[in-house]
Every structure is written in structure tokens, then in C-alpha cells.
Amino acid sequence: MKESHLAYFYSGDDGLSDVKMTIVSKKGKERIREFIMIRLDIEEGGNQKYYTYFKKPSDVSRITFMVHKTSEGNDQRWIYIPSIDLIKPISADDKNSSFVGSDFSYEDVSGRHWTEDTHSLKGEETLDGKAVYVIESVPKKKYKGFSRKVSYIDKESMLPLKEEYFNKKDKLVKEFSADKIEVIDGIPTITVRTMNNIKKGGHTTVSFNKISYNVGIKEDIFTERYLKNPPRKYIKK
């Protein structure tokens, strides 16, 4: 599980990508979020820093967002609203809350640390012609996000191809699928992914464009200075 977590959330030492999020409601109405995401791993499998610059829609454009993620789970988040020149720390207690109104939670975007769950191998199968491990994860501490998660992990890339989230009544509530995997800079990467919200209806598809790894991102980008002044070296519209 650790290996899969590292393959999925810690690809390379840093990452830079153009992200397009399509949020589809139960009634089929579409909303689009476009942003640039910069990630830096401070230590492999440990602390990480994320920087997000919103491009679309225009009512959130130029807003920047920063997360300092620690493996102990006490993350820090900040948002900068340029129209009022305001930096605001955000209470990061509820990691299960939606990321920008999508079906992905904060934790789905940046990853839940593997040490927070107990993992067991349930078997080996073939999914869409690929050999996978079937792994069940149960939170050690009671968790709102799921009470049980079943992951189908590709033996070759160690990436999750499918994840099923069950609630406390053991009903399937959310389903994750890796829709497209590409090899970028020698690293297998899920470039299109979908979270299907079975309980509520609707789904969110995220596609990653222009991904690059190991671009030499410096840690000072993840400070208030750059929150106010986006690093133009990486951020073009």
C-alpha cells in the first residue's frame, strides 16, 4: 500500500500540472474549474507542499491556495483573494470536505497517509486486462470519509485503477477510477481520473495536462510571498 501511495501521490520529487476539473451534477449540469498545481515533496512519503493557482471560472481566477501537508496530519491551508489583497488561513480540520465543490475531497487530492489505515490483501484479479492486487483499507480511527475502502492496484505501475468507498452501513458511496494512464518523464501517471458520487449522484472528472516532474521547484514558493505574487516561471494562463 505504501508503494502504491508513493507511486500515486509522490511521483518524482516535485510536480507541475495544468488541471481541468469538470463537475457534473446529478441533473447533468457541468461546471469547470481550471487551475495550475505545483507540488513539492519535502521527504518521500512524508511532508508535502502544494500550491494552486486558479484560472477559471473568472469569479475565482487569480485566487491562490497553499497547503503544507504533514504526515502527522496537522495540515495548514491558506487562501489568497487578490481582489481584496487578503491572505486567510483556513481551518483544515475536516479533510473530508469537498475540494472546490467537486466530488473529490481535500484528502482525495493530496492523499490520505497510508499509516492512518490498516491494509489487508483480499486477493489478486484482472481488471480491464491488467493484473491487480485487491486491497482493503480500514481506518484505525473513526473517519467520516469512509469506513472501508477497496483498492484495485495495478501490479505493474502500482497505481490504483479503481477504488470503492463504503460508508458505515457498508453501502458503496463513492467510486474512483483511473481513466487514462500515461508515462510522463518515465513515470506512469493517471492523467484522467473520475470520482463517481454514487450516494449523491453526479461525478467529477479531472484531467491533467502538461505534467512535468522533477522541475526543480524551490521550497520558498510555498510561502505567503508567492501566495501574493504567483511564481510566473511556472504560472502562465
Binding site: 481551518s91 480540520d93 475536516d94 473530508n96 470536505s97 469537498s98 467520516k144
Partner: peptide
């Protein structure tokens, strides 16, 4: 002091 008291409720 500010905190999230429920999902989406601050």
C-alpha cells in the same frame, strides 16, 4: 476563533 463545525459549515 474560527472552525468548521460540520461539512461545509464554518
Amino acid at each position: 476563533f474560527e472552525r468548521q463545525v460540520a461539512t461545509g459549515f464554518t
